[in-house]
Amino acid sequence: MKTSALLLIFGLFLTACNAPQNAAVAPSPTENDATAQPVQNQTKSKLIVVTTVAPITNIVSNIAGDRTEVKGIIPEGTDSHTFEPRPSDADLLSKANLIIVNGLRLEAPTEKLAKTSKPKETNVYELGNNTINEAQWIFDFSFPKEKGDPNPHLWVNPKYAEAYAKLAAKQLTQLDPEGKEYYAQNLNNYLQRLDALDKVSREVVASIPAKNRKLLTYHDSWAYWAREYGFEVIGAIQPSDFKEPSAQDVAKLIDQIRKTGVPAIFGSEVYPSKVEEQIAREAKVKIANTADDELPGTGSANAIENTNPQHTYIGMMANNLRIIAENLGGNPQLVDKLNTTNVVGPATTATK
């Protein structure tokens, strides 16, 4: 029996010695392996929301805050009507968990790429189409009814910007139900800022003599604002094909300005043109530039990363109100009370 026991022990020893050198050895339960983090402790990647023009990007980012990564796809200072997405944009769109666009046929090439690049489960949500119905569409100089595309610039009207913010909050909550309270708080704070913008807009308009409440702009983006605040849009320099106006068009505009007695016309920072200077010179009126999709302030061109406190949708509209008031006989100082900063994200200040 002693001999059998010794042989058994010797056999076990040989087996251990002949084991493969690279055999895995389970770590002790007490060992701390920094590379083996439990799944629940790993950082959860943020959801990605892709937007289009800078004002919409800024509105959405004020609701999304730091829970969601918001990326604007159309560079500021770019014509959103004719913008052609870059090859790299297809990759970004394919990774998006949600794509928020203005709709109303503003970003047709981008929407087309989004629908071909996105995963099937990704939603492309159109803000404009869910804010007004077809009976509320406006057709005008740059967007004639015979072409079929309505004026898509709803966000220039602060009341529609409020609707955009509410719709964005709803979409973000559906995407990220755990952030419901966070999005609701951001929305509440942001709506206070937009309500203040609406009130100041009405005060500025009231300060402008009634006979001067007329707009002639380069690109016709003020239609919904004018309808809301009692202005008349008397014309647009840029034709519906987005080309430069003909000599005949220019002559008609000069004659119209003289007849209406409007003291100023408004160009565009996105559509620089010497034609507007010619019109102003010959009609003997002032000229100033407004913006509808380029946010003010220097720094990063990205609407999210820029930390300038004026580089916001409200900052853009505040600048526009000042310019309109200064050139049409109103009181631009009324705008000074506005808080133009974000409610969350870069350049945030407390809600007043």
Rank of each mutant, 00 (worst) to 15 (best):
D293A: 11
I324T: 08
I237D: 08
G235S: 06
K337R: 04
L338Y: 10
A318E: 02
K286C: 01
A325S: 02
Q248P: 01
M317V: 01
V275I: 15
E282R: 09
V285N: 10
R322W: 08
G230H: 06
I279C: 00
L338A: 03
T348D: 08
N319W: 05
P263T: 02
K274M: 11
G235V: 13
I279G: 00
F231N: 09
P272R: 06
L338V: 08
V335M: 03
S300E: 12
R281T: 12
T340Q: 12
K274Q: 14
K337E: 15
K284Q: 14
L338Q: 08
P239S: 03
K274L: 09
I287C: 03
E232C: 00
H311Y: 02
Q333D: 15
E326S: 09
L253D: 12
N306P: 09
F242C: 05
E269S: 11
G230A: 00
P346D: 09
Q238H: 03
A264Q: 01
N327P: 11
R281P: 07
N327R: 00
G329I: 05
I265R: 00
L334F: 06
A291S: 15
I234C: 01
N327D: 09
D336K: 04
N308F: 07
E232M: 00
V335T: 03
V262G: 01
G299R: 10
L328K: 00
A303L: 09
N289A: 11
V335W: 12
D292T: 15
A291H: 10
